[in-house]
Amino acid sequence: MRLRFRRRRLGQFAIAGTVGAVLAGFTKQAMGQSTPQTPSKPEVPADPNSYVDVELQINGKEQMLKIEPRVTLLDVLRERLDLTGTKKGCDHGQCGACTVLVNGRRINSCLTFAIMHRGAEITTIEGLAKGNTLHPMQAAFVAHDAFQCGYCTPGQICSAVGLVNEGHAQSDADIRELMSGNICRCGAYPNIVTAVREVLEGKKNAAV
């Protein structure tokens, strides 16, 4: 329950940040998603139905979009780019199914507007494997049956890759804590911990 509160606070923080950013108007330069802008009075009321050009770099590919500024990164991926590997589980930053990597950091793509990520390197589940060779985390998830229905899986894997990048997890207890933003209703948690531990320990024996 501790964890749940933390997750919600993060969500509110991100929403406050994004609302601030939108009100401040849209600038051409990239906006760091972790540094919320100070809200200033807009000169013209924002029209939610106006369109802007947004260029995104997703899985190493440039994507040109004409979207309303309020479109979330998640909905851009799923509804505009057919990158449906990233899942919508709650649309409120509470379940982690939409986790993607932005400049190597894991974020909930439902809690952030696409327009905030101009210039950033966005990696989704579709961008982790190299051709037919799975990323070690993907291979470990298969080998240890770290999923059942598979719907939370892309988010779990992106989150786990982010966890490895962060370098904080030293024990199974750490993995459990740091993976608690990603809900798995099928209850594959023990196998997820095994898969993440294996990758952390650098074992390469995961069957592909």
């Binding site: 329950m1 709650c90 459990r176 608690s180 933003g181 990603n182 209703r185 948690y189 911990v193």
Partner: peptide, 14 residues
Amino acid sequence: DLAEYHVPVNADVP
């Protein structure tokens, strides 16, 4: 929602 309707998360499961 999933913040207030609590289901087990990873840290809840041994």
